[in-house]
Amino acid sequence: MLHLFLICLVVGVAAGMLAGALGLGGGVVIVPALIFLFHGLDFPPDLVAKMAVATSLSTIIVTSISAVRTHHRAGYVRWPVVWRLAAGIVLGAFAGAFIADWMKGALLTRLFGIFAMLVALQMLLVGRRQVDERAPERVPGAMGLGLAGLFIGTGSALFGIGGGSLTVPFLTWCRLKMQQAVAISAACGLPIALSGTVAFAVAGWHQHNLPDGALGYVYLPATAGIVLTSFPMARVSARLSHRLPSATLKKVFALVLFILGLKLALG
């Protein structure tokens, strides 16, 4: 247990630094790290991916609170849009968790590997999209935002992420300013993480071969270790980000993420 906790402290440092320096969600770092770690600790193979995804979501609860406060103080969070998205997100996150519970662990691992490769390719090939501020916004109504939230929540819970890689592209398509898109995405990360964590805890409650320290599929020792370091490191690296070669770091991380995703996808 102590060995695992120390490794999770290191994972938290890496996740926090990449989140602060590159603006990446921690889930894309935490999930593959936990998959390899849990396999190394001989956790039941069919539970490894589910526990990695669930534990990743539980860590996002803490980190998203800080992000929401920062964006809210800057005045970039458009709360009416958040609430309408959140209505679908909560339902989607519960659906994603129970879909993951239904899946075989190997299938979920391969799907995450494919998702990681797509994120890596996006980082390598797609530049940051500039929104034409002269063009009118095309934000859907309550029903459209609710349906979008349902899709975002399902995908985010399925892959253990805060939803930024899904929410930001959608909001930029709606022609919102990038600062607003990122802020709304950060605010949506909290209901994704809360709903997904609760759903995974409930979905895994019936499992009888979980390791000690697990709450359903959420492995609490790993949550504690990651949060202890990811939260402060994200703040520190964000302050230092202007001194770091972010473009180079982004390309290196994208290549590493693609290789990890390929390994997970191939099994």
Rank of each mutant, 00 (worst) to 15 (best):
H3L: 13
H3K: 11
L4T: 06
L4C: 03
F5I: 12
L9F: 00
V10G: 04
G12F: 00
M17D: 01
M17R: 00
L24V: 03
G25F: 03
G27F: 03
V28S: 10
V29S: 01
A33E: 07
L34M: 08
F36Q: 05
G40W: 06
L41F: 14
A52G: 04
L57D: 06
L57P: 08
S58N: 06
V62E: 12
I65T: 14
A74C: 09
Y76L: 12
V77L: 08
R84S: 13
L85A: 11
I89V: 15
V90N: 10
G92N: 09
A93Q: 12
A93H: 10
A95E: 12
F98L: 10
I99V: 15
I99A: 12
A100E: 11
M103V: 06
K104D: 14
F112V: 08
M117T: 03
L121Y: 04
V126Y: 03
G127A: 14
R134H: 12
R138L: 14
R138F: 08
R138G: 05
I152Y: 06
T154P: 04
A157K: 04
A157P: 02
T167N: 13
F170N: 08
L176W: 05
V182Y: 00
A187V: 05
G189W: 02
P191R: 07
A193T: 01
A193N: 01
S195N: 06
S195Y: 01
T197W: 07
V198W: 13
A199T: 05
A199D: 09
F200K: 04
V202T: 10
A203M: 09
W205E: 14
H206R: 13
Q207H: 10
H208G: 05
N209G: 10
L210H: 05
L210Y: 06
D212W: 07
G213H: 06
A214T: 11
L215N: 06
L220W: 15
A222V: 02
G225R: 01
I226Q: 02
M233R: 00
R235N: 10
S237R: 00
A238E: 03
S246D: 03
L257R: 00
K263H: 08
K263W: 03
A265L: 04
